[in-house]
Amino acid sequence: MSRGTERGIGIKVLVAIAVAIWVVGVVWSAGTWRLLAEESARVRGLASEVATMRALAVEAAGYAETQKRVQGVAATAPVALAGVVGERITGAKVDQTRARRQSLGDGWALHEQDLVFDEVGIIEVMGLVDELEAGQPPWRLEALEIRAAAHTPGVGQVSLTLAALQRDS
């Protein structure tokens, strides 16, 4: 076989390889184009889901942080209401009508206490509430109802609902 013929065959083989690679490349490109079209929609969906999940994670972290912070504040038992009320409010009829306990899990519970004062100085009661809320751990005012006496300014009936978090011993 002459060198020219060998060279001709070599070029034909090269052409065949080049054509084959081109065909593979073009077919592959079509596949890649389709993959891009499909996957770009999927990536957009995933990006949106990741964004939602991040927002949920932030929200969950906020809840957990609040819970941890509040539990840190309420690590000890709040002051006993009966004693404080007896000391601060004199000459008024006090009725501790109802006490409730709501378990929050993990050994924690929410204690609620209703108090009703008849013919009491309203400022005096609000001062008591301020003091209770400033305590460590604090009582928190959950509800308040004031009904002023008809003819005595600054006096009336005051109903309170106080709540405190407490670790069950």
């Binding site: 889901e49 939602t52 999940m53 949920l56 994670a57 929200e59 969950a60 809840y63 957990a64 609040t66 819970q67 912070r69 509040v70 539990q71 309420a74 709501q102 929050l104 899990g105 929410l110 609000m126 509430v129 301020d130 809320e133 928190r140 005012l141 959950e142 509800a143 308040l144 709540a163 978090l165």
Partner: peptide, 27 residues
């Protein structure tokens, strides 16, 4: 995402007393 949403909602309900406790006082 749906599972996480349900979980966070449950967490929101469970921690509601804590959040109420930390919100601005009615006083």
């Amino acid at each position: 995402v749906l599972i996480a949403k349900r979980q966070v909602e449950a967490q929101r309900r469970a921690t509601e007393p804590y959040r109420r406790y930390s919100e601005p006082r009615l006083t």
